[in-house]
Design a protein around this nucleic acid. Structure first.
Lengths: 147, 147
DNA sequence: TTTTTTGCAAAACCTTTGCAGTTGG
DNA sequence: CCAACTGCAAAGGTTTTGCAAAAAA
């Protein structure tokens, strides 16, 4: 696998729109919230609270786990992130909105495959037809062929 | 909703075949293992370790949580149960084998809908065709119309 | 008898909560 | 200024691990 260091792939929409969503939800924009969102925007996969803490910690900012959890919950209420579980580990948080991704997790090998939401449209339709569910944020787990 | 107390619904195959599977995997058949499996057979939904502990505890048997976890892990290796997560709570354990069920969990209302495995055949096929997964033990989470 | 399994206790994780001090609007 | 937010510390819930006693084969 090769990487393209000159053209960093921008996976999600901009940070400012996420901050605007926070303001719209009546939340204040703080430094802690900025760096948490930046960590999520920089990653192209869901992050655990601990992973966010690690990535957002800088010499000058003493971010605490409690704040990360409290903020992620606030973000979830504001419709900015969603809280998912892949496998048996800690909960993970992923950005919602423009550029949002869906995830397929392999229980056998632990790999996570990132999908565009549209790639699950057929499955969503089938679920709705068969079981009456208008599924959003579909988070299935599969095991079988490695991802 | 009405119940039929006179005809208890037998949801899964027999306890003896599960015990045979344990022996086949080189595990000993102990009283603790018997009562854990009985609790799972008696329930028609996945149970948490704590739920199993509550249901399996009797005045004469001092079953411990550590034993429940150790045994559920052993059962999983032996192919007798599977370990799933529905929502954000504790892990749940469900029987595998004849009479096995699949579960659809509503993130909005918390309800769990039990399905016959065949009811997911179409979705399994679609997943395999689109993403190359021979999914077994499909454990999707959905939210939308209440279950 | 030999190995596995058990209960108990302690620890490891992950997450939540209380509180006094700080910060954003 | 005032309500919202923060770090710190402590607690809560779930799961794992170490070890000597008990039970299965």
């Amino acid at each position: 696998m090769t990487t393209s260091p000159a053209v960093p792939r921008v996976q999600f929409a901009d940070l400012d729109s996420a901050l605007a969503a926070l303001r719209a939800a009546g939340l204040r924009v703080t430094l802690a919230r900025r760096v948490i969102l930046q960590a999520l925007f920089a990653a192209d996969e869901p992050l655990s609270a601990e992973a966010i803490l690690t990535r957002a910690a800088t010499p000058e900012l003493a971010l605490d786990a409690a704040s990360v959890y409290r903020n992620l919950e606030a973000f979830e209420h504001a419709g900015v992130v969603r809280h998912v579980h892949l496998g048996h580990g800690a909960g993970l948080y992923a950005l919602i909105g423009e550029g949002e991704r869906e995830y397929l997790y392999c229980e056998r090998c632990g790999a996570t495959r990132s999908l565009a939401p549209r790639q699950l449209d057929e499955i969503r339709t089938l679920l709705r037809e068969r079981f009456g569910h208008a599924t959003h944020a579909f988070g299935g787990e599969a095991h079988g062929a490695p991802l």
